[in-house]
Design a protein around this nucleic acid. Sequence first.
DNA 1: GTTATTGCAAACCATTTGCAAGTGT
DNA 2: ACACTTGCAAATGGTTTGCAATAAC
Lengths: 165, 165
Amino acid sequence: MPELTSVRVSVSPIEKFREFLATKGMRLTREREIIVNEVFSSHEHFEPDQLVARVTRRDDAQRVSRSTVYRTLSSLEEAGLLRKVARGEHGDVYEHDYGYPQHDHLICQKCGDLIEFHNKAISKLLDEIADEHNFRMSSHRLEVYGTCDNCLRRPRRRHQKLDMV
Amino acid sequence: MPELTSVRVSVSPIEKFREFLATKGMRLTREREIIVNEVFSSHEHFEPDQLVARVTRRDDAQRVSRSTVYRTLSSLEEAGLLRKVARGEHGDVYEHDYGYPQHDHLICQKCGDLIEFHNKAISKLLDEIADEHNFRMSSHRLEVYGTCDNCLRRPRRRHQKLDMV
DNA sequence: GTTATTGCAAACCATTTGCAAGTGT
DNA sequence: ACACTTGCAAATGGTTTGCAATAAC
């Protein structure tokens, strides 16, 4: 088991969010807190609707409406706590963008799975390319589409239409 | 069987499309031909709605409905003649994917401008990365966001939006 | 003659928004 | 108290689809 160093994050997501909200004259409400807790309870990528499903099904004081989920996700994105990732035909997902290093994705077109990777050489090349074009880079999105290991090993017939003549 | 040279030769887009349609048991209709001509009359990136606007405004036999434009764009994408490019908050655009080498984009967040580039080293790195993950890569999308040369030079102006004046 | 295709309008669907009621500071 | 916020329902907006009429082969 590798040793974990807790150097990365000094402030909890909820605290970071509160700070962000404060600068906007916004409040950390019960609903926003519920959503942040839900979002940061696991490191999985998620679709807005998955989150909505979880928090709207409740019948207690932990319930949050669909609108509020969407509104809060936007705020979390703006606050730098979440980032949106486009998965092509599979729709967008959110991922944590706080306390995690920059990375890119392999995206399986069969099962929609996301595999993260980071490659310094690519980052360096991007710097050079931007420089050549006198372009000031602020971010990038690199998505590699194809078929993941799992789907290659156990191909599901229904995905292969083979309608080639 | 038509005679083909041994070298990769540029068949016209319309011909390529006809071949694709044939393999699908589909027909090259007047409407599809109109759209292909319109799409390949210039190399510009375009939004579906821009194309729709051009071909639905007509009152002669050159008119094509919105539905047919969308249906045909999908077919052209499937046929490998067009490719969709996501511009982040600026919405998706189509670009020619036939007779043009693979390339990526610098995308200006100020003006939405697209600057194409190609870098062999990046392609090579992607091959290696996919390989390491036993991932079969079929394509990739690399978009570099930031501010373009033009917008850096004219910081306070919206540049090249001449279609509004 | 079949069978694919078109145009229209209606449906879709994830996301956004107006508004009245509710809540944090 | 005063804004900010919520939940609901309705609006959005780009894209897709059902269907009857039409056209390609």
